[in-house]
Measured scan of single mutants.
Amino acid sequence: MQRVNMIMAESPGLITICLLGYLLSAECTVFLDHENANKILNRPKRYNSGKLEEFVQGNLERECMEEKCSFEEAREVFENTERTTEFWKQYVDGDQCESNPCLNGGSCKDDINSYECWCPFGFEGKNCELDVTCNIKNGRCEQFCKNSADNKVVCSCTEGYRLAENQKSCEPAVPFPCGRVSVSQTSKLTRAETVFPDVDYVNSTEAETILDNITQSTQSFNDFTRVVGGEDAKPGQFPWQVVLNGKVDAFCGGSIVNEKWIVTAAHCVETGVKITVVAGEHNIEETEHTEQKRNVIRIIPHHNYNAAINKYNHDIALLELDEPLVLNSYVTPICIADKEYTNIFLKFGSGYVSGWGRVFHKGRSALVLQYLRVPLVDRATCLRSTKFTIYNNMFCAGFHEGGRDSCQGDSGGPHVTEVEGTSFLTGIISWGEECAMKGKYGIYTKVSRYVNWIKEKTKLT
């Protein structure tokens, strides 16, 4: 034993070699072989497995989906700052455009905790909710729209109204504003409101030439003092309507412009014939205590009207009353817009006519005020429907199939267009061939041609 100890002390290297040989010859039971080890760690190889990531292109799944990435790591994937920024906006807080917040056709661009709407022409605001041009839906104005110097929408209202708090709607500024039905039992019968379409306001006024200088022999019209197929109006439903009495009662109609003036057809009036105007009328054979009678003290036909040349060209006249009318729910003026808007309103496509005229061709006159909704007829169809001249200051309205029309005794009465609950004068009943005849239409004086003249002559002093 002493000898062994001496050998170990003198030859430590020998001992180490012996131990190493023993270990190498022993069977290893701690580690699995290569094949079995792979069965336990069965993990798919990654895209760049075996390579240094710093030297390969980034992978979106590896960089940002398996674990949260930084902007720089995302930049490695896209290799483009702009594309990385677009991805980053949604990656950080989701897609803010998912709810489609942009209105009126706006395009949404996502941002971090926010979004941006790219608005089409005519709109602005956070969600493109603000109209900035009158060309689109009248700028959301209830009545009139004008573009300011910086191309912003400025709404306005006709006389007797003021802008509401929203700067879009119009509200009454006087007790009985024009064009409004205020009798409670008839307010439910107000005709369907007309909503502004998209309009090209630059070209809204037709490029028409008034044929002022045409000389033409007097034409022989049949029954051209021209509501057939209409309905009984309720008291106060058309408070701007008046009836004219002269040699015979209810020979023509008219509309209240203001307390002192009536507008009617020029062919209705004769110099030297006494005319009485009755406002607030409903049943011409009954006294309903809503009527107001006034005498006409002055007749002003349009300066281009000449019955000797043509009885229905420039067929418009103004009547001055001896005493002002007292405005109330049964006696209310009709609204008159400017030339541009009167023309736009007419193009809405349908209007209402009213009167006490004959209820059928050569038949009896109506006792109760009649009204009828009539569609506008395109000019080409209008011209083809008659052998008589249709001037540019006239328009056609009615039904091709016949059966409904204005008729004798309705002449001078109103053709009105309702705009968001307020009625505007767009025409004056003038003439036609018979009444409600198939293929024939009622012919009306186009008020847009005469609004400046009306307003100039009827100013209240």
Rank of each mutant, 00 (worst) to 15 (best):
T461G: 07
A266T: 01
E270Y: 03
G13R: 05
V278F: 04
R373L: 06
D232M: 09
D111W: 09
V353H: 05
I136K: 14
W453V: 00
T225S: 10
P239C: 00
L319D: 01
D405G: 12
I256Q: 01
F348I: 08
G351I: 02
R373N: 12
T290I: 06
T29D: 10
C335A: 00
P44L: 10
K126H: 10
P44C: 04
K438E: 15
K68R: 11
T461W: 07
T271Y: 05
E73Q: 08
I309E: 11
E433F: 07
C178A: 01
T209V: 11
N36A: 11
S187R: 09
G357L: 07
C435L: 03
K440P: 07
V243S: 08
L321W: 00
W431D: 09
A317L: 03
N203V: 07
R298P: 00
K234Y: 14
P175S: 10
F224P: 12
T264P: 00
V374R: 04
V92H: 10
V269K: 02
L319K: 00
E286Q: 12
E76H: 15
F87K: 14
V374C: 03
S354K: 08
G246P: 02
T422L: 05
A397Q: 02
A436P: 15
E401R: 14
K137T: 11
E281G: 10
R162S: 10
S182I: 08
G230H: 12
K109P: 01
N452S: 13
V154T: 09
P324T: 04
K45F: 04
S99E: 13
D110V: 07
K347S: 13
C157Y: 00
H34K: 11
F196N: 12
V181P: 11
I300K: 03
K274E: 02
Q219V: 09
G432T: 13
K260H: 05
D212A: 07
T209R: 11
S423V: 11
P44D: 14
A308S: 13
F348G: 14
Y305R: 04
R43K: 14
G229L: 13
G253Q: 09
G230P: 10
E35A: 13
R384S: 07
C252V: 01
D198W: 12
N80L: 04
E456M: 09
L163V: 09
E27T: 08
I15Q: 04
G280V: 01
N80D: 15
F251S: 08
F196C: 06
A397Y: 02
L52G: 05
K457V: 12
E418H: 10
G254F: 01
R162I: 09
E320K: 03
A207F: 09
L460A: 07
A173P: 00
T276G: 05
F348S: 13
N222G: 13
I336N: 01
D150M: 11
C102F: 00
E86H: 15
T264I: 03
F424P: 01
R449G: 14
P235F: 06
T276E: 14
V4R: 12
H302M: 02
L325H: 00
S204F: 09
C119Q: 02
N59Q: 14
R294D: 00
R379G: 06
F31H: 08
T29W: 06
A307L: 07
P333A: 06
S204K: 11
G351M: 02
F388R: 10
H361N: 14
N138E: 07
I428Y: 05
F221T: 08
P235I: 08
F360L: 14
E208W: 08
I299C: 04
I454M: 07
S11N: 09
S49A: 05
G442H: 11
S423M: 13
R162C: 04
F424M: 00
